[in-house]
Amino acid sequence: MIIPYLELAISFLRVSLSAYGGGIAAISLIRHEVVVIRGWLSVEEFIRVVTLAEMTPGPLIVNTATFIGFRLAGVPGSLVATTAVLSPALLLLTALMLAARRLESRGQFRVRIQDAVKPAVLALMLMAIISFGRNAVTNLSTALIAALALAVLLVSRRKVHPVLVVIAGGIAGLFLL
């Protein structure tokens, strides 16, 4: 009875520790874990799960973990998978914050890890635009929606809630696509 939970936990812990750069990057890792190693889902099922995770609110990685956990072991399974996929990063962040505080209190200077990693973060973000954009912007209509949405976000000078723009994009999709 315990074994499926344990396997779920181990799989998603592994995903969490190597998942980088947000949901899209994590997807290939989860596929490797769930389809190739464990054989819990077929490739087609997995693609359906990812589509679903993309269209439901919230972080992609949380959605995928919840769904797969639920499919395999019900509500407890979904909680196990989600906790496993989230906790390592949060523990790591806590540890880093404590370490930074310790170093700071010792010297007069501030340890600014966040400044050193900026270029890598920017590179990761640009990669995310490319990989997400390539899947989402596939023809003239989607390009039009994306361009309009970006224009609204940039011109509105932070007065329009970004979520409204996405909903508007969806409604435009109903009529255009």
Binding site: F132, A136, V137, T142, V165, G169, I171, A172, G173, L176
Partner: peptide, 8 residues
């Protein structure tokens, strides 16, 4: 449509 807006 929403995905295109999410890209933006």
């Amino acid at each position: 449509g929403a995905a295109a807006a999410v890209a933006a």
